[in-house]
Design a protein around this nucleic acid. Structure first.
Length: 434
DNA sequence: TTTTGAGTTGTTCGA
DNA sequence: GTCGAACAACTCAAA
């Protein structure tokens, strides 16, 4: 019997899934598939908690499919090899998936498109991960925005109810390939990962009150004032349409944060060099320090600046860091320590549960001054002032740096005033050469 | 084409 | 303690 494959990637849900909806609406005998990508997994330590999160999520997704009489087929391997094999095994005439805008994903999908097209198999992508993608929001001259505020205004002008509408997947679930056959998913151990849970995962549900008060509470790391949805948006366990719809009528500041997410997805699509290099290439001329002692101190939360250290220790202990503190530690690494923003971005990539390449690079380049619409290079966060403004009672600092204020606490590894002056003059000199 | 206004999240200085 | 200007001078978007 001829079938159609729906390939889950960063959309690990059935509800309001655009690509799944299109597959089920247009086709019969749709077989859902997920692949643990061997190439990506081989680079991760066995303790990686994101793999554990994905594994848990896939397991419950498989159970959800079973309730619908279908079976999620889960594999471990290289998608570029596996998908054509599955197409042959299932005698599939089409593969549906949701689009991914990262350079490596685009390359992978291009290869697959060519392979499948040769075999007369349709490879169909849908927009699911963002509200507006690629070139849907452009300037009047037809080129992409590189400044957020005018992008955001245009984004809002273009928005209609249709863009936030949920895809009624449930209406077409009868077109899932019905089977009682069972395909157990590969165990974490078989893929080289521990099943030990070290971090808590934020839930996909949260109090609406948090969004209502977001603009008042979001900057205080000791307050639970953020929705903690980044992990779920990353892996598609929450629908961006659902969240944006709620945000659009609840809190403009929060809504704008979701638009920032679209903005950086659009930037990485149009400017793929920003996955590795600075958006403003002249900033790659800055003579970054290679001080590994400084870098280790930053990673371990031993810089002697309590807010920086609290942030890094929160990250190491939980796989999460409050957004305000992310800016502080990023500014500290790139300005106070004059270390290459890529070192910091890479560390975040290893540690953050919610790591998303486009947003991570966008944020780091903003802090380092080399990104689009970035903080000017002479704007250097003062960690002491940030502490005074956003954690005055030291609740956050005391939680993560209990020895702060005692003789056991490490002395500052750099002097703020000196480091600030050196950063500004180093940037200025390097940029003047262009 | 030229001009004009504006630009995520800040800090420091001096009145 | 508070406030506004300066920081340094740039790029982008749109009229």
């Amino acid at each position: 019997m001829q079938k159609v494959i729906f390939w889950h990637r960063r959309d690990l849900r059935i509800e309001d899934n655009a690509g799944l909806y299109h597959a089920l609406k247009n086709e019969k005998n749709v077989v859902p598939v997920f692949i643990f990508d061997e190439t990506i997994l081989s680079l991760l330590p066995s303790t990686d908690q994101r793999v554990l999160f994905i594994h848990q999520t896939i397991k419950s997704l498989q159970e959800s499919y079973r309730e619908l009489g279908a079976e999620l087929h889960v594999y471990y391997g290289k998608p570029v090899e596996l998908i054509p094999e599955l197409v042959a095994n299932f005698d599939a005439k089409a593969v549906y998936a949701n689009r991914d805008y990262e350079p490596l994903a685009l390359e992978r999908d291009k290869q697959l498109f060519e392979l499948l097209t040769k075999r007369d198999v349709v490879f169909k992508g849908s927009k699911d991960h963002v509200i507006f993608e690629k070139s849907e929001v452009l300037k009047a001259d037809g080129t992409p925005y590189t400044v957020f505020t005018p992008y955001m205004r245009r984004w809002k002008e273009k928005l209609t109810d249709f863009h936030l509408k949920s895809y009624p997947v449930e209406q077409y679930v009868a077109n899932l390939f019905q089977t009682a056959e069972r395909h157990e998913l590969p165990t974490l151990e078989s893929m080289g990962f521990e099943s030990q849970k070290r971090h808590d995962f934020p839930t996909a549900s949260f109090a609406e009150k948090i969004i209502q008060k977001y603009h008042e509470t979001r900057d205080f790391p000791a307050v639970a004032g953020t929705s903690r949805q980044s992990l779920h948006l990353r892996f598609g366990t929450t629908s961006i349409r659902k969240l944006a719809k709620l945000a659009s009528v609840t809190n403009e500041k929060y809504f704008n944060e979701l638009i920032w997410r679209d903005f950086y997805q659009m930037i990485i699509f149009h400017f793929p060099h920003t996955a590795k290099d600075s958006f403003r290439r002249e900033y790659d001329q800055i003579p970054w320090s290679r001080n590994e002692v400084h870098f280790s101190a930053w990673c371990e939360g031993k810089t002697g600046y309590p807010l920086v250290d609290a942030g890094m220790r929160e990250l190491n202990a939980t796989g999460h860091m409050h957004n305000r503190v992310r800016m502080v530690v990023a500014s500290f690494l790139s300005k106070h320590l004059l270390l290459d923003w890529r070192w910091g971005a890479q560390y975040f990539a290893e540690k953050l549960l919610d790591f998303e390449l486009a947003s991570n690079n966008g944020g780091w380049q903003w802090a380092a001054g080399c990104g689009c619409d970035a903080a000017p290079y002479f704007r250097v966060f003062n960690p002491a002032l940030q502490l005074d403004k956003f954690d005055k009672e030291l609740k956050y600092v005391k939680k993560w740096v209990p020895e702060y204020g005692t003789s056991a606490y490490v002395k500052p590894i750099v002097d703020h005033k000196e480091a600030r002056e050196l950063a500004i003059s180093t940037y200025k000199t390097a940029l003047a050469k262009n």
